[in-house]
């Protein structure tokens, strides 16, 4: 099985305002982008499973020119709240690195 990290040159996460987290997944070229950006591992349901996101709120926007896909969801706890552990959501991408893609 191919892991997401094997077909990307950069994967990152960041807050997009206080209420959203956004993931930028840059594939290592147009071929990988075309082949994998709609993979079930990158579906709204997958983000619900990995992060507890509400699948109906997950936004997916492919950017062909950059061979990347942007995936965002509303934070499951508010930024800065009682149990905050990642104010910028900057460490949230890591569980994505090893998701397995259908080959």
């Amino acid at each position: 099985m191919v892991k997401l990290r094997d077909v990307c040159h950069e994967i990152r996460s960041k807050n997009a305002g206080p209420f959203w987290v956004t993931f930028d997944i840059f594939f290592d070229g147009p071929a990988s982008f075309t082949r994998y950006h709609d993979d079930p591992a990158l579906s709204a349901e997958s983000f619900a499973r990995l992060y507890g996101a509400d699948a109906s709120m997950v936004k997916r926007i492919p950017v062909d020119d950059l061979s990347m896909i942007k995936i965002s969801y509303p934070r499951t706890s508010p930024q800065g709240g009682m149990v905050e552990r990642d104010m910028h959501s900057g460490q949230q991408y890591v569980p994505l690195l090893d998701v397995e893609l259908a080959d």
């Binding site: 956004t22 926007i61 950059l66 990347m68 942007k70």
Partner: peptide, 16 residues
């Protein structure tokens, strides 16, 4: 071109 076009992605949910 990459550094400038990729900045539209930054801290946004919609890069367009």
């Amino acid at each position: 071109v990459h550094s400038v076009s990729a900045h539209m992605l930054y801290e946004n949910t919609d890069p367009f």
